[in-house]
Design a protein around this nucleic acid. Structure first.
Lengths: 343, 343
DNA sequence: CTGAAAGCGCTAACAC
DNA sequence: GTGTTAGCGCTTTCAG
């Protein structure tokens, strides 16, 4: 049988209130020997107060939900760790929810978390907008939520942390251009997602600033997956045959690292040497052990920090404290690992 | 204000009991129109029953704790995903706990989970034995726990899933030996951990079976980390200078992939070509995108499956069902990726 | 077919 | 200094 506050009270010949006070360290008005006696008994029986019962009263569970597409993705595991570390420091537990970006699962989890323990939620999914009304319900109930790289239609003022995707993409394209490239292909992510669109915009911004005319045939749409990078690059290379000598692609900007690696594979198979024959850049800076080749020039995404910051915001929200800024946007930096060379 | 069962009851002019019955689909004895009316109101107000209140009564929270060293480690994120998928299918939520293998954090989390919601725990940490007494308390309270690759002193019959580390290590060493190698170095993991010890035993088993005399100087102790693999290999290579021509190391078995990669780096720096000049094998089969080089011959660890199976066992345990086998040991297989060559 | 009442383990007014 | 009481939101006998 599990030991309860009543057991302790009975065995110590005091009321449950007194025991409760001891548990909660409100011992100002309790005799020192009484406190001691109770504490001893608690230790003896290994009693731990039921947080379920506590939650009933206080209405708070000291638990938050973290909703992500997949922990196996290094970006999300890094993020999750940032969240967990911060939450743990502040005595919060973290509920892990993998959605595989499925609306169905997302909905399921929201219901689960709403009813179960959970004082707040952290949300990050490759998303469209379809979901807004679900959020609206949560918003109206003043349920604390922090968005992570999730763009919601018509709700600009929702608390969230974001990357400056557009700025980051522009920076890496600027970098490519600075090496003398003019014919730069772009493999986009799925444009239903806002961050893919923003990365494309960054590419366009850079071209514009450098007064490089926009060539539609250089932009091809991928899905953020390795295989998709592979397929897109194949197509690009075929088209390249038909281009005039001064129109040949000399560099590729892929909207994420996985696609960049897929594209890289094609270049390798075609006998092209990076960066001598052709240059390539990615976005994400997925971490791999030092020894691995090839290396990719890319854009760093501070996932761990982002997790921490989102957690911090959520805690403020749950405590009904004022947020310094409702949304925070991380500036992004280029990491040069030598896959972009001079023309 | 959050909507409760009372609100629904009041608005539908029925008792809370009736509403409760509808929620729990025990509608055998309730008028069809009543059910419908109540269900409509529930949908209308977006009511979700409080699982906290439910937990109070049933004593079960439909939540389990997953205690691992670090989600960022691909092995554990894979495992976590297996756990989460299975638990989710069965309507359980998963609490994520990263301990960094710290005893302190482990203890903290156990206390957290005991008191908070959590019907059971899944444990996996690079561990020593010091911790047993803590477990004993949980065992005595018949708290459902499943161990994952965690070896406990004096508690053989504790439910758990394991890898056949010894058998797997023997298999890969057999493979190395089958290629004609005789002078095989072994970089062990930290021998305080049981699985590192077992992998060493597998190495010894293989030598013995092949009647290769054991040379103590070929065994060096690492910590499972990349840097440690690097350092150990450096030492091994230095010692190699002093060995006679027929005593030179021709192959290395590292107790995990990360150390193998670290060792590989040294070989690369020394201008040695794998597998032409020297062979190397690892243990874990960490997954990386196709394009990465070098490739490592290693032992596959079915992390996802293991997570699923552990989750399944835990659910049986929580339901007080009989376990088919109290412990399950996964047989392990070699994955040949060409880093071990013929002498 | 439906409801009243008790109670899960704990906290928080309010007494004494 | 300490105890009494009510009640958090729900399920579950037991009555009708």
């Amino acid at each position: 049988m599990k030991v309860t506050i009543k057991d302790i009270a009975r065995l110590c010949d005091v009321s449950v209130t007194t025991v409760s006070r001891v548990i909660n360290h409100k011992t100002d008005n309790i005799g020192a020997k009484t406190v001691e006696r109770i504490e001893k008994k608690i230790a003896e029986l290994g009693y731990t107060p039921s947080n379920v019962a506590r939650s009933m009263i206080t209405g708070r569970s000291h638990t938050v939900g973290l909703i992500i597409p997949d922990v196996r993705n290094p970006f999300f595991s890094e993020l999750a760790r940032g969240v967990e570390d911060y939450m743990n420091e502040h005595q919060y537990g973290v509920f892990l929810c993998n959605t595989d970006s499925s609306l169905e699962k997302e909905k399921q989890y929201i219901d689960l978390l709403k009813g179960r323990v959970s004082d707040g939620m952290l949300f990050t999914t490759q998303n469209r907008f379809e979901f807004s009304h679900y959020f609206h319900e949560l918003i109206q109930n003043e349920y604390p939520i922090v968005l992570i790289e999730r763009y919601l239609e018509g709700v600009d003022t929702f608390p969230g942390v974001y990357f400056d995707n557009r700025g980051g993409a522009k920076k890496i394209c600027d970098f490519i251009i600075s090496k003398g490239h003019k014919n730069i292909a772009c493999i986009t992510g799925p444009l239903e997602t806002t961050n893919a669109k923003m990365r494309l915009d960054g590419y366009l911004d850079a071209l514009k600033e450098a007064a490089i005319p926009y060539d539609e045939s250089l932009v091809i749409h991928g899905t953020y997956r390795y295989q998709s990078g592979y397929d897109c690059m194949k197509t690009l290379l075929e088209q390249n045959e038909r281009r005039g000598e001064d129109k040949k692609i000399t560099a590729i900007f892929a909207s994420n690292d996985m696609m960049a690696y897929g594209a890289y594979k094609v270049l390798e198979e075609a006998g092209l040497v990076v960066p001598r024959d052709i240059s390539i850049a990615g976005f994400d800076n997925i971490k791999f052990p030092d020894i691995f080749k090839p290396k990719l020039t890319t854009v760093e995404l501070p996932a761990y920090d982002m997790g921490k910051r989102a957690a911090e915001m959520l805690i403020r929200l749950m405590r009904k404290e004022e947020l310094e800024e409702v949304t925070y946007e991380y500036p992004l930096e280029v990491v040069d690992k030598g896959s972009v060379g001079r023309v």
